[in-house]
Design a protein around this nucleic acid. Sequence first.
RNA 1: GCCCCCAUUGUCUAGCGGCCUAGGACGUGGCCCUCUCAAGGCCAAAACAGGGGUUCGAGUCCCCUUGGGGGCACCA
Length: 498
Amino acid sequence: MTQEFKPVRVRFAPSPTGYLHLGSARTALYDYLIARKTGGQFILRIEDTDRKRLVDGAEEELMSNLRWLGMEWDEGPDIGGHYAPYRQSERKEIYQEYGEKLVESGFAYYCFCTPQRLAAVREEKQKKKEPPHYDRICRSIPIEEARERIAAGESHVLRFKTPIEGTTIVKDLLRGDISFENKTLDDYILIKSDGWALYHLAAAVDDHLMKITHVVRSSEWLPTSPIHSLIHQAFGWDEPVWVHLSVLLKPSGKGKMSKREAVELSGEGHSIFIKDMQGLGYLPEAVVNWVALMGWSYDDHTEFFSMQDLIEKFSLEKLNPAPAATNFTKFDYFNKLHIKVLSDADLAERLQPYFKTAGIQTDKKVLEKIAPIVKERIVTLDDAVEMAKFFFTDKITYSKERILMEGCDAKGTIEIGRRILEELKSLKEWNTADLDLIVRGMMEKEGKEPKQFLGFLREVISGQKISPPLFESMEILGKEVVLKRLENALRFIEENFD
RNA sequence: GCCCCCAUUGUCUAGCGGCCUAGGACGUGGCCCUCUCAAGGCCAAAACAGGGGUUCGAGUCCCCUUGGGGGCACCA
Protein backbone atom coordinates (compact mmCIF):
# COMPACT_ATOMS: atom_id res chain seq x y z
CA MET A 1 0.00 0.00 0.00
CA THR A 2 1.67 3.16 -1.19
CA GLN A 3 -0.21 5.00 1.49
CA GLU A 4 2.33 3.77 3.96
CA PHE A 5 5.05 5.90 2.54
CA LYS A 6 3.07 9.04 3.00
CA PRO A 7 3.49 10.60 6.43
CA VAL A 8 0.97 9.03 8.76
CA ARG A 9 -0.61 10.49 11.84
CA VAL A 10 -1.13 7.81 14.42
CA ARG A 11 -2.17 7.98 18.03
CA PHE A 12 -1.47 5.79 21.00
CA ALA A 13 -4.53 6.19 23.16
CA PRO A 14 -4.26 4.47 26.51
CA SER A 15 -6.61 4.98 29.38
CA PRO A 16 -4.90 5.79 32.67
CA THR A 17 -6.58 2.96 34.51
CA GLY A 18 -3.52 0.82 35.04
CA TYR A 19 0.06 0.36 34.08
CA LEU A 20 1.55 0.10 30.61
CA HIS A 21 1.90 -3.57 29.78
CA LEU A 22 3.48 -5.59 27.01
CA GLY A 23 0.45 -5.53 24.75
CA SER A 24 -0.12 -1.81 24.84
CA ALA A 25 3.62 -1.15 24.65
CA ARG A 26 3.67 -3.13 21.44
CA THR A 27 0.79 -1.13 20.01
CA ALA A 28 2.58 2.07 20.93
CA LEU A 29 5.77 0.76 19.35
CA TYR A 30 4.12 -0.03 16.05
CA ASP A 31 2.50 3.39 16.08
CA TYR A 32 5.81 5.00 16.84
CA LEU A 33 7.69 3.05 14.19
CA ILE A 34 5.32 3.77 11.38
CA ALA A 35 5.19 7.43 12.32
CA ARG A 36 8.98 7.74 12.35
CA LYS A 37 9.40 5.67 9.23
CA THR A 38 7.05 7.80 7.21
CA GLY A 39 8.07 11.07 8.77
CA GLY A 40 4.63 11.45 10.28
CA GLN A 41 3.45 12.14 13.80
CA PHE A 42 3.13 9.92 16.83
CA ILE A 43 0.47 11.30 19.10
CA LEU A 44 -0.25 10.46 22.70
CA ARG A 45 -3.87 10.83 23.67
CA ILE A 46 -5.14 10.03 27.12
CA GLU A 47 -8.55 8.39 27.13
CA ASP A 48 -9.76 9.25 30.57
CA THR A 49 -13.48 9.72 30.11
CA ASP A 50 -14.29 7.05 32.64
CA ARG A 51 -13.71 9.11 35.74
CA LYS A 52 -14.45 6.22 38.06
CA ARG A 53 -11.64 4.00 36.86
CA LEU A 54 -8.83 6.50 37.00
CA VAL A 55 -5.73 5.34 38.79
CA ASP A 56 -3.67 7.93 40.58
CA GLY A 57 -0.35 8.59 38.90
CA ALA A 58 -1.06 6.20 36.05
CA GLU A 59 -0.76 8.88 33.40
CA GLU A 60 2.67 10.01 34.62
CA GLU A 61 3.85 6.42 34.95
CA LEU A 62 2.63 5.69 31.44
CA MET A 63 4.53 8.58 29.97
CA SER A 64 7.69 7.75 31.81
CA ASN A 65 7.45 4.10 30.70
CA LEU A 66 7.01 5.15 27.10
CA ARG A 67 10.04 7.39 27.33
CA TRP A 68 12.08 4.67 29.02
CA LEU A 69 11.36 2.48 26.02
CA GLY A 70 12.63 5.24 23.79
CA MET A 71 9.42 6.55 22.30
CA GLU A 72 8.94 10.27 22.23
CA TRP A 73 5.61 11.61 21.04
CA ASP A 74 5.14 14.62 18.82
CA GLU A 75 1.89 15.77 20.33
CA GLY A 76 0.48 14.94 23.72
CA PRO A 77 -1.04 16.18 26.96
CA ASP A 78 2.27 17.32 28.41
CA ILE A 79 3.72 18.95 25.32
CA GLY A 80 0.57 20.11 23.56
CA GLY A 81 0.18 20.35 19.80
CA HIS A 82 -2.04 21.77 17.10
CA TYR A 83 -5.01 19.67 18.10
CA ALA A 84 -4.87 20.11 21.86
CA PRO A 85 -6.11 19.22 24.33
CA TYR A 86 -4.94 15.63 24.18
CA ARG A 87 -6.68 14.52 27.31
CA GLN A 88 -10.26 13.45 26.63
CA SER A 89 -11.39 14.67 29.99
CA GLU A 90 -10.65 18.16 28.69
CA ARG A 91 -12.78 17.62 25.59
CA LYS A 92 -16.13 16.82 27.17
CA GLU A 93 -17.99 19.67 25.46
CA ILE A 94 -16.64 18.70 22.07
CA TYR A 95 -18.17 15.24 22.35
CA GLN A 96 -21.46 16.67 23.52
CA GLU A 97 -21.50 19.01 20.58
CA TYR A 98 -20.85 16.18 18.13
CA GLY A 99 -23.35 13.97 19.90
CA GLU A 100 -25.95 16.64 19.39
CA LYS A 101 -25.06 16.80 15.70
CA LEU A 102 -25.87 13.14 15.38
CA VAL A 103 -29.23 13.68 17.03
CA GLU A 104 -30.01 16.43 14.57
CA SER A 105 -28.99 14.37 11.59
CA GLY A 106 -31.02 11.44 12.88
CA PHE A 107 -28.15 9.09 13.65
CA ALA A 108 -28.56 9.15 17.41
CA TYR A 109 -31.36 9.27 19.95
CA TYR A 110 -31.90 9.81 23.62
CA CYS A 111 -32.64 6.82 25.78
CA PHE A 112 -34.27 7.03 29.17
CA CYS A 113 -34.09 3.41 30.19
CA THR A 114 -32.71 2.78 33.65
CA PRO A 115 -29.72 0.54 34.22
CA GLN A 116 -32.06 -1.80 36.03
CA ARG A 117 -34.28 -2.14 33.01
CA LEU A 118 -31.31 -2.64 30.74
CA ALA A 119 -30.03 -5.41 32.97
CA ALA A 120 -33.44 -7.04 32.90
CA VAL A 121 -33.59 -6.83 29.11
CA ARG A 122 -30.14 -8.31 28.86
CA GLU A 123 -31.03 -11.17 31.13
CA GLU A 124 -34.23 -11.84 29.24
CA LYS A 125 -32.41 -11.95 25.90
CA GLN A 126 -29.77 -14.22 27.24
CA LYS A 127 -32.40 -16.59 28.47
CA LYS A 128 -33.88 -16.66 25.00
CA LYS A 129 -30.36 -17.26 23.60
CA GLU A 130 -30.48 -14.02 21.67
CA PRO A 131 -27.71 -11.41 21.50
CA PRO A 132 -27.96 -9.49 24.79
CA HIS A 133 -28.62 -6.19 23.13
CA TYR A 134 -30.74 -3.19 23.96
CA ASP A 135 -34.34 -3.61 22.80
CA ARG A 136 -34.39 -0.10 21.30
CA ILE A 137 -37.69 1.02 22.78
CA CYS A 138 -36.53 4.60 23.19
CA ARG A 139 -35.63 4.75 19.54
CA SER A 140 -39.22 5.62 18.73
CA ILE A 141 -39.58 8.47 21.19
CA PRO A 142 -40.20 11.65 19.20
CA ILE A 143 -37.33 14.07 19.50
CA GLU A 144 -39.55 16.85 20.90
CA GLU A 145 -40.78 14.59 23.65
CA ALA A 146 -37.23 13.50 24.40
CA ARG A 147 -36.10 17.09 24.71
CA GLU A 148 -38.96 17.88 27.07
CA ARG A 149 -38.07 14.96 29.29
CA ILE A 150 -34.45 16.07 29.34
CA ALA A 151 -35.49 19.61 30.17
CA ALA A 152 -37.53 18.17 33.01
CA GLY A 153 -34.33 16.69 34.34
CA GLU A 154 -34.89 13.07 33.44
CA SER A 155 -31.76 10.94 33.42
CA HIS A 156 -30.77 9.91 29.92
CA VAL A 157 -28.03 8.63 27.67
CA LEU A 158 -27.35 9.17 23.99
CA ARG A 159 -27.44 6.11 21.78
CA PHE A 160 -26.27 5.50 18.26
CA LYS A 161 -29.05 4.60 15.86
CA THR A 162 -27.41 1.56 14.37
CA PRO A 163 -28.95 0.49 11.05
CA ILE A 164 -31.19 -2.50 11.57
CA GLU A 165 -30.76 -3.89 8.09
CA GLY A 166 -27.88 -4.23 5.74
CA THR A 167 -24.23 -4.98 6.19
CA THR A 168 -21.33 -2.91 7.39
CA ILE A 169 -17.92 -3.61 5.95
CA VAL A 170 -14.82 -2.72 7.88
CA LYS A 171 -11.69 -2.51 5.82
CA ASP A 172 -8.89 -3.86 7.96
CA LEU A 173 -5.39 -3.47 6.58
CA LEU A 174 -4.33 -6.92 7.73
CA ARG A 175 -7.53 -8.89 7.26
CA GLY A 176 -9.18 -7.31 4.30
CA ASP A 177 -12.91 -6.62 4.27
CA ILE A 178 -14.72 -7.84 7.34
CA SER A 179 -18.46 -7.81 7.07
CA PHE A 180 -20.97 -7.52 9.87
CA GLU A 181 -24.71 -7.95 9.63
CA ASN A 182 -26.11 -4.76 11.09
CA LYS A 183 -28.84 -6.70 12.85
CA THR A 184 -26.20 -8.31 15.04
CA LEU A 185 -25.03 -4.89 16.21
CA ASP A 186 -26.28 -2.97 19.23
CA ASP A 187 -27.43 0.62 19.65
CA TYR A 188 -24.32 1.54 21.55
CA ILE A 189 -24.31 4.30 24.11
CA LEU A 190 -22.43 7.34 22.90
CA ILE A 191 -22.79 9.60 25.92
CA LYS A 192 -23.46 8.38 29.43
CA SER A 193 -26.03 9.83 31.82
CA ASP A 194 -23.24 11.70 33.58
CA GLY A 195 -22.52 13.58 30.36
CA TRP A 196 -19.22 11.88 29.58
CA ALA A 197 -18.73 10.38 26.15
CA LEU A 198 -17.91 6.73 25.76
CA TYR A 199 -15.01 5.40 23.71
CA HIS A 200 -17.02 4.89 20.53
CA LEU A 201 -17.92 8.54 20.16
CA ALA A 202 -14.88 10.13 21.77
CA ALA A 203 -12.35 8.16 19.76
CA ALA A 204 -14.15 8.72 16.46
CA VAL A 205 -14.48 12.44 17.05
CA ASP A 206 -10.89 12.81 18.18
CA ASP A 207 -9.47 10.67 15.42
CA HIS A 208 -11.23 12.84 12.91
CA LEU A 209 -10.45 16.17 14.54
CA MET A 210 -6.84 15.19 15.09
CA LYS A 211 -6.54 14.02 11.49
CA ILE A 212 -5.50 10.52 12.42
CA THR A 213 -4.74 8.53 9.26
CA HIS A 214 -4.20 5.07 10.74
CA VAL A 215 -5.82 3.57 13.78
CA VAL A 216 -3.58 0.82 15.12
CA ARG A 217 -5.18 -1.01 18.02
CA SER A 218 -5.71 -4.42 19.53
CA SER A 219 -8.06 -6.88 17.85
CA GLU A 220 -10.24 -6.69 20.93
CA TRP A 221 -11.71 -3.74 19.09
CA LEU A 222 -12.70 -5.75 16.06
CA PRO A 223 -16.23 -6.57 17.27
CA THR A 224 -17.09 -2.90 17.73
CA SER A 225 -15.23 -1.67 14.70
CA PRO A 226 -18.37 -1.56 12.53
CA ILE A 227 -19.82 0.95 14.97
CA HIS A 228 -16.77 3.11 14.58
CA SER A 229 -17.06 2.90 10.80
CA LEU A 230 -20.75 3.75 11.04
CA ILE A 231 -20.08 6.76 13.26
CA HIS A 232 -17.57 8.13 10.80
CA GLN A 233 -20.04 7.56 8.00
CA ALA A 234 -22.82 9.26 9.93
CA PHE A 235 -20.69 12.36 10.19
CA GLY A 236 -19.70 12.07 6.57
CA TRP A 237 -16.04 11.68 7.48
CA ASP A 238 -13.39 9.62 5.78
CA GLU A 239 -12.42 6.64 7.86
CA PRO A 240 -8.86 6.14 9.02
CA VAL A 241 -7.07 2.99 7.89
CA TRP A 242 -8.00 0.36 10.45
CA VAL A 243 -5.22 -1.88 11.65
CA HIS A 244 -6.26 -4.47 14.18
CA LEU A 245 -3.33 -6.12 15.87
CA SER A 246 -3.31 -9.66 17.17
CA VAL A 247 -3.77 -10.22 20.86
CA LEU A 248 -0.83 -11.21 23.05
CA LEU A 249 -1.47 -14.55 24.70
CA LYS A 250 -0.05 -15.79 27.98
CA PRO A 251 3.07 -17.99 27.81
CA SER A 252 0.99 -21.15 27.66
CA GLY A 253 -0.78 -19.77 24.61
CA LYS A 254 -4.09 -20.41 26.33
CA GLY A 255 -5.97 -17.17 26.59
CA LYS A 256 -4.86 -13.59 26.72
CA MET A 257 -2.80 -12.04 29.46
CA SER A 258 -4.84 -11.67 32.58
CA LYS A 259 -4.33 -10.12 35.99
CA ARG A 260 -4.01 -13.56 37.44
CA GLU A 261 -1.34 -14.47 34.93
CA ALA A 262 0.52 -11.27 35.71
CA VAL A 263 0.73 -12.27 39.35
CA GLU A 264 2.00 -15.72 38.52
CA LEU A 265 4.65 -14.28 36.24
CA SER A 266 5.97 -11.98 38.93
CA GLY A 267 6.58 -15.06 41.02
CA GLU A 268 8.94 -16.26 38.31
CA GLY A 269 10.90 -13.03 38.13
CA HIS A 270 8.97 -11.80 35.14
CA SER A 271 6.44 -9.11 34.56
CA ILE A 272 4.18 -7.90 31.82
CA PHE A 273 4.38 -4.35 33.14
CA ILE A 274 6.93 -2.02 31.61
CA LYS A 275 7.41 -0.25 34.92
CA ASP A 276 8.88 -3.46 36.38
CA MET A 277 11.31 -4.22 33.58
CA GLN A 278 14.12 -1.97 34.70
CA GLY A 279 14.06 -3.28 38.24
CA LEU A 280 14.18 -6.83 36.93
CA GLY A 281 17.36 -5.99 35.04
CA TYR A 282 16.00 -5.75 31.52
CA LEU A 283 17.17 -3.26 28.93
CA PRO A 284 14.60 -1.13 27.15
CA GLU A 285 16.35 -2.15 23.93
CA ALA A 286 15.54 -5.77 24.68
CA VAL A 287 11.93 -5.06 25.49
CA VAL A 288 11.53 -3.20 22.23
CA ASN A 289 13.26 -5.89 20.17
CA TRP A 290 11.30 -8.70 21.77
CA VAL A 291 7.93 -7.08 21.64
CA ALA A 292 8.43 -5.90 18.06
CA LEU A 293 8.83 -9.49 16.95
CA MET A 294 5.62 -10.69 18.54
CA GLY A 295 3.43 -10.31 15.52
CA TRP A 296 5.90 -8.79 13.12
CA SER A 297 8.96 -10.05 11.30
CA TYR A 298 11.32 -8.65 8.74
CA ASP A 299 12.64 -11.70 6.91
CA ASP A 300 13.52 -15.31 7.57
CA HIS A 301 16.65 -14.73 9.63
CA THR A 302 17.09 -11.23 11.03
CA GLU A 303 16.07 -10.91 14.64
CA PHE A 304 18.37 -8.41 16.27
CA PHE A 305 16.93 -4.95 15.89
CA SER A 306 17.75 -1.63 17.45
CA MET A 307 15.05 1.01 17.48
CA GLN A 308 16.78 2.60 14.53
CA ASP A 309 16.77 -0.71 12.62
CA LEU A 310 13.09 -1.10 13.34
CA ILE A 311 12.28 2.37 12.10
CA GLU A 312 14.05 1.58 8.85
CA LYS A 313 12.61 -1.88 8.35
CA PHE A 314 9.15 -1.78 9.86
CA SER A 315 6.06 -2.04 7.73
CA LEU A 316 2.44 -2.51 8.67
CA GLU A 317 1.93 -5.02 5.87
CA LYS A 318 4.20 -7.57 7.46
CA LEU A 319 2.16 -7.61 10.64
CA ASN A 320 0.81 -11.05 11.51
CA PRO A 321 -2.91 -11.17 12.37
CA ALA A 322 -2.61 -14.41 14.36
CA PRO A 323 -2.43 -14.24 18.16
CA ALA A 324 1.04 -14.67 19.66
CA ALA A 325 2.04 -16.34 22.91
CA THR A 326 4.43 -14.37 25.09
CA ASN A 327 7.76 -16.14 25.42
CA PHE A 328 9.81 -14.89 28.35
CA THR A 329 12.69 -17.25 27.63
CA LYS A 330 13.16 -15.47 24.37
CA PHE A 331 13.00 -12.19 26.22
CA ASP A 332 15.98 -13.30 28.31
CA TYR A 333 17.79 -14.20 25.13
CA PHE A 334 17.20 -10.75 23.67
CA ASN A 335 18.33 -9.15 26.88
CA LYS A 336 21.61 -11.10 26.72
CA LEU A 337 22.03 -10.07 23.12
CA HIS A 338 21.56 -6.39 23.86
CA ILE A 339 23.78 -6.48 26.94
CA LYS A 340 26.52 -8.01 24.85
CA VAL A 341 26.60 -5.16 22.35
CA LEU A 342 26.78 -2.47 25.02
CA SER A 343 30.10 -0.68 25.36
CA ASP A 344 31.97 -1.31 28.60
CA ALA A 345 31.39 2.24 29.76
CA ASP A 346 27.70 2.05 28.96
CA LEU A 347 27.28 -1.30 30.66
CA ALA A 348 29.19 -0.11 33.71
CA GLU A 349 26.92 2.86 34.00
CA ARG A 350 23.80 0.74 33.70
CA LEU A 351 25.10 -1.77 36.21
CA GLN A 352 25.86 0.75 38.92
CA PRO A 353 22.27 1.23 40.16
CA TYR A 354 21.83 -2.49 40.77
CA PHE A 355 24.85 -2.64 43.01
CA LYS A 356 23.59 0.42 44.79
CA THR A 357 20.22 -1.20 45.36
CA ALA A 358 22.02 -4.19 46.81
CA GLY A 359 23.82 -1.85 49.17
CA ILE A 360 27.16 -2.23 47.45
CA GLN A 361 29.34 0.80 46.89
CA THR A 362 31.03 0.56 43.51
CA ASP A 363 33.90 2.25 41.81
CA LYS A 364 33.28 3.43 38.28
CA LYS A 365 36.74 2.49 37.06
CA VAL A 366 36.52 -1.00 38.48
CA LEU A 367 33.02 -1.44 37.13
CA GLU A 368 34.27 -0.64 33.67
CA LYS A 369 36.95 -3.29 33.98
CA ILE A 370 34.38 -5.81 35.14
CA ALA A 371 31.94 -4.99 32.37
CA PRO A 372 33.68 -7.00 29.62
CA ILE A 373 34.06 -10.13 31.73
CA VAL A 374 30.49 -10.23 33.04
CA LYS A 375 28.98 -9.06 29.78
CA GLU A 376 28.39 -12.42 28.25
CA ARG A 377 27.52 -14.33 31.36
CA ILE A 378 24.59 -12.36 32.70
CA VAL A 379 21.02 -12.59 31.56
CA THR A 380 19.69 -9.58 33.41
CA LEU A 381 21.65 -6.60 34.66
CA ASP A 382 21.06 -7.49 38.28
CA ASP A 383 22.76 -10.85 37.71
CA ALA A 384 26.01 -8.91 37.71
CA VAL A 385 25.64 -8.13 41.40
CA GLU A 386 25.76 -11.77 42.47
CA MET A 387 28.59 -12.50 40.11
CA ALA A 388 30.79 -9.51 40.81
CA LYS A 389 30.04 -8.33 44.31
CA PHE A 390 33.33 -9.78 45.59
CA PHE A 391 35.17 -7.04 43.74
CA PHE A 392 33.72 -4.46 46.08
CA THR A 393 33.98 -5.99 49.51
CA ASP A 394 36.72 -7.34 51.71
CA LYS A 395 34.32 -9.46 53.66
CA ILE A 396 34.54 -12.74 51.81
CA THR A 397 32.62 -15.50 53.45
CA TYR A 398 34.25 -18.85 52.81
CA SER A 399 32.40 -22.09 52.61
CA LYS A 400 33.79 -25.08 54.50
CA GLU A 401 32.49 -27.29 51.74
CA ARG A 402 34.42 -25.54 49.02
CA ILE A 403 37.51 -24.01 50.54
CA LEU A 404 39.62 -27.15 50.60
CA MET A 405 41.30 -27.95 47.32
CA GLU A 406 39.49 -30.82 45.71
CA GLY A 407 41.26 -34.07 46.59
CA CYS A 408 43.26 -32.47 49.42
CA ASP A 409 42.78 -32.27 53.16
CA ALA A 410 43.23 -29.11 55.21
CA LYS A 411 46.91 -29.69 55.72
CA GLY A 412 47.59 -30.29 52.05
CA THR A 413 45.57 -27.28 51.01
CA ILE A 414 47.41 -25.04 53.43
CA GLU A 415 50.78 -26.26 52.24
CA ILE A 416 49.96 -25.65 48.61
CA GLY A 417 48.30 -22.38 49.51
CA ARG A 418 51.46 -21.15 51.20
CA ARG A 419 53.53 -22.02 48.18
CA ILE A 420 51.09 -20.14 45.96
CA LEU A 421 51.29 -17.18 48.30
CA GLU A 422 55.08 -17.04 48.08
CA GLU A 423 55.05 -17.42 44.34
CA LEU A 424 52.48 -14.66 43.85
CA LYS A 425 54.30 -12.38 46.21
CA SER A 426 57.34 -12.52 44.00
CA LEU A 427 55.34 -11.92 40.84
CA LYS A 428 56.46 -8.66 39.29
CA GLU A 429 53.95 -8.16 36.51
CA TRP A 430 50.41 -8.45 37.84
CA ASN A 431 48.34 -9.05 34.78
CA THR A 432 46.13 -11.74 33.34
CA ALA A 433 48.73 -13.20 31.01
CA ASP A 434 51.47 -13.50 33.62
CA LEU A 435 49.08 -14.78 36.25
CA ASP A 436 47.88 -17.38 33.82
CA LEU A 437 51.44 -18.46 33.07
CA ILE A 438 52.72 -18.59 36.62
CA VAL A 439 49.64 -20.16 38.21
CA ARG A 440 49.37 -22.85 35.59
CA GLY A 441 53.05 -23.54 35.98
CA MET A 442 52.58 -24.13 39.67
CA MET A 443 49.55 -26.23 39.03
CA GLU A 444 51.59 -28.59 36.92
CA LYS A 445 54.38 -28.69 39.45
CA GLU A 446 51.88 -29.62 42.14
CA GLY A 447 50.37 -32.20 39.84
CA LYS A 448 46.89 -30.75 40.11
CA GLU A 449 44.05 -30.46 37.68
CA PRO A 450 42.63 -27.06 36.67
CA LYS A 451 39.36 -27.69 38.44
CA GLN A 452 41.22 -28.48 41.69
CA PHE A 453 43.80 -25.75 41.58
CA LEU A 454 41.88 -22.96 39.93
CA GLY A 455 38.69 -23.90 41.72
CA PHE A 456 40.50 -23.38 45.00
CA LEU A 457 41.76 -19.98 43.94
CA ARG A 458 38.31 -19.02 42.76
CA GLU A 459 36.94 -19.72 46.20
CA VAL A 460 39.83 -17.83 47.75
CA ILE A 461 39.35 -14.62 45.84
CA SER A 462 35.56 -14.63 45.54
CA GLY A 463 34.03 -17.00 48.04
CA GLN A 464 31.76 -17.91 45.16
CA LYS A 465 31.12 -21.08 43.27
CA ILE A 466 30.61 -19.12 40.12
CA SER A 467 32.68 -16.11 39.13
CA PRO A 468 34.04 -14.35 36.09
CA PRO A 469 37.27 -15.84 34.69
CA LEU A 470 39.88 -16.31 37.39
CA PHE A 471 42.96 -14.57 36.05
CA GLU A 472 41.07 -11.55 34.79
CA SER A 473 39.41 -11.27 38.15
CA MET A 474 42.75 -11.49 39.94
CA GLU A 475 44.18 -8.77 37.79
CA ILE A 476 41.28 -6.46 38.51
CA LEU A 477 41.39 -7.16 42.24
CA GLY A 478 45.07 -6.35 42.33
CA LYS A 479 48.01 -8.07 43.91
CA GLU A 480 47.52 -6.71 47.39
CA VAL A 481 43.91 -7.78 47.66
CA VAL A 482 44.52 -11.22 46.25
CA LEU A 483 47.43 -11.91 48.64
CA LYS A 484 45.35 -10.67 51.54
CA ARG A 485 42.48 -12.96 50.60
CA LEU A 486 44.80 -15.92 50.25
CA GLU A 487 46.14 -15.27 53.73
CA ASN A 488 42.62 -14.92 55.09
CA ALA A 489 41.56 -18.11 53.41
CA LEU A 490 44.46 -20.04 54.84
CA ARG A 491 43.70 -18.68 58.27
CA PHE A 492 40.07 -19.71 57.79
CA ILE A 493 41.19 -23.25 57.06
CA GLU A 494 43.45 -23.35 60.06
CA GLU A 495 40.68 -22.17 62.31
CA ASN A 496 37.96 -24.40 60.94
CA PHE A 497 39.68 -27.69 60.32
CA ASP A 498 41.94 -29.53 62.76
C1' G B 1 -25.84 -18.83 22.98
C1' C B 2 -24.62 -15.05 19.13
C1' C B 3 -20.92 -12.19 16.24
C1' C B 4 -15.94 -11.67 14.57
C1' C B 5 -10.81 -13.10 13.89
C1' C B 6 -6.97 -16.73 13.43
C1' A B 7 -4.54 -21.59 11.97
C1' U B 8 3.50 -23.83 9.51
C1' U B 9 7.76 -27.73 14.84
C1' G B 10 6.75 -26.72 22.36
C1' U B 11 7.20 -21.02 21.27
C1' C B 12 8.08 -16.59 17.84
C1' U B 13 8.13 -16.94 12.76
C1' A B 14 9.92 -17.24 6.87
C1' G B 15 6.81 -18.81 3.00
C1' C B 16 2.50 -14.18 -0.84
C1' G B 17 1.22 -21.60 -6.91
C1' G B 18 6.56 -24.59 -9.03
C1' C B 19 12.98 -21.92 -5.74
C1' C B 20 9.99 -26.49 0.03
C1' U B 21 13.00 -33.74 0.47
C1' A B 22 9.40 -26.43 4.38
C1' G B 23 14.18 -21.91 6.11
C1' G B 24 15.71 -19.01 10.72
C1' A B 25 15.53 -18.13 16.03
C1' C B 26 14.36 -19.44 21.26
C1' G B 27 13.90 -23.74 23.94
C1' U B 28 15.24 -29.14 24.24
C1' G B 29 18.98 -33.36 23.57
C1' G B 30 24.06 -34.80 22.12
C1' C B 31 29.19 -33.75 20.97
C1' C B 32 33.48 -30.29 20.83
C1' C B 33 35.95 -26.27 23.42
C1' U B 34 36.75 -25.10 28.56
C1' C B 35 39.41 -22.60 35.35
C1' U B 36 33.47 -22.17 37.38
C1' C B 37 29.43 -19.93 34.79
C1' A B 38 28.62 -18.29 30.20
C1' A B 39 29.90 -17.57 25.22
C1' G B 40 31.23 -20.07 20.75
C1' G B 41 31.34 -24.32 17.11
C1' C B 42 29.03 -28.82 15.18
C1' C B 43 24.92 -32.23 15.10
C1' A B 44 19.94 -34.04 16.27
C1' A B 45 14.72 -34.47 17.36
C1' A B 46 10.57 -31.29 16.23
C1' A B 47 5.51 -28.34 11.98
C1' C B 48 2.30 -27.22 6.95
C1' A B 49 -4.90 -29.48 11.99
C1' G B 50 -8.44 -32.73 8.88
C1' G B 51 -11.46 -33.24 4.54
C1' G B 52 -13.09 -31.59 -0.04
C1' G B 53 -12.32 -28.66 -4.30
C1' U B 54 -9.52 -25.11 -8.16
C1' U B 55 -4.90 -26.10 -10.92
C1' C B 56 -0.40 -29.48 -15.11
C1' G B 57 1.14 -28.38 -9.99
C1' A B 58 -1.14 -26.14 -3.15
C1' G B 59 1.99 -24.96 2.99
C1' U B 60 0.60 -21.05 -0.48
C1' C B 61 -6.26 -19.90 -3.65
C1' C B 62 -11.77 -21.38 -2.34
C1' C B 63 -15.32 -24.17 0.82
C1' C B 64 -16.53 -27.20 5.03
C1' U B 65 -15.11 -29.42 9.62
C1' U B 66 -12.13 -29.11 13.79
C1' G B 67 -9.21 -26.38 17.01
C1' G B 68 -7.61 -21.81 19.20
C1' G B 69 -8.51 -16.67 20.26
C1' G B 70 -11.39 -12.18 20.89
C1' G B 71 -15.99 -9.62 21.81
C1' C B 72 -21.20 -9.28 23.41
C1' A B 73 -21.02 -2.73 29.97
C1' C B 74 -23.81 4.07 31.22
C1' C B 75 -14.96 0.10 30.53
C1' A B 76 -11.36 1.08 27.11
